[in-house]
Amino acid sequence: MNPETLKKAIKDRAKREGYRLNPDENFLESIFEGLYKNVERYGYPSCPCRLSAGIFEEDIDLVCPCLYRDPDLYHYGRCFCGLYMTEAYMNNKDKPVVPNRRPMEPAKIEKIGSRIGVKTVGARYRCKSCGNEITVDKVGGGVLICCGQEMELIKEDK
């Protein structure tokens, strides 16, 4: 991945998902720079506005688009770092400040990072918050997170 492919991937994603990117070109470039710096040093584009641990399992919720992007876009019309925006936010005069939604207690982050997650193909997980249900097709080993919390295992295999 180089800076241009990263930029293109983000622009394409925004278009595909119906979001807008920050209209301030200089600001946008600054975010892209930060994201690419994280790709270079960590291997993944974690949020440039939050402190990454440099360990993928611990930073999984910060990989752009971060886990908090959609709830922030829903509630405030803008993601925490200001990369993604909604059309309504851009047209609105009030620009609310977006608070940091990420839990900061290191213990909690450490716990998620060190826990063994998905183990079997066919296992079913449910989000205790929104009710999303998913079935595992391939085991990667990570912990599944939805709506900012760990998903609940409801069925071990098929």
Partner: peptide, 9 residues
């Protein structure tokens, strides 16, 4: 601050 953060810059 963070070296990557546009707001910090």
């Amino acid at each position: 601050t963070l070296s990557t953060c546009p707001y910090c810059k």
